Amino acid sequence: MQLSVEISKYPLHSDYIPFIKSFIERLNKHDGLTVITNTMSTQVFGEFDVVMSVIQAEMKASFEQFGQSVFVCKFISGDLSPEA
């Protein structure tokens, strides 16, 4: 099953840009995902189990490395990427 996810990250820190960039860079290192970033959010597309395990691992890494953040996510079944 394919999954599409839209993620917005809101670090609770005044210097928030490096925290967001780090999360996006780590997402892009995973094979099997399509990651598209714009000024409002990051979209992740791929196989359900892969997407969920990557998001879980990278959210945890963000909390451990940078502290408190708010993640707002939308999960939609299917591949809604522009390339699909």
Rank of each mutant, 00 (worst) to 15 (best):
D49C: 00
S22F: 01
V35Y: 03
E6W: 00
D31E: 12
Q65R: 15
V51C: 04
Q68K: 13
C73M: 14
E6M: 08
V54G: 03
N28G: 13
F75T: 07
F48G: 02
Y16V: 06
H30C: 06
E25V: 15
Y16I: 12
P11F: 03
S77T: 08
E83H: 03
K29F: 01
I17H: 09
K74Y: 03
E58C: 12
P18E: 13
V5Q: 07
V5E: 03
Y16A: 15
E47R: 12
F48T: 13
V50F: 00
V5T: 12
F66L: 11
S14W: 03
K21Y: 06
I36W: 00
D79A: 01
S4A: 07
S77H: 07
L12K: 11
V51D: 04
S41V: 09
S4V: 06
L27T: 07
H30F: 04
M59A: 05
Q56R: 09
S22P: 01
T39R: 13
D31A: 05
V35W: 07
T37N: 12
I36H: 03
L3Q: 08
R26K: 12
I76R: 07
V54N: 03
V5C: 14
I36R: 00
C73E: 10
A57L: 04
M52I: 06
F19T: 12
T39Q: 13
S62K: 08
K9L: 14
V50H: 06
I7E: 08
K74C: 05
V44F: 02
V50I: 08
Q68V: 09
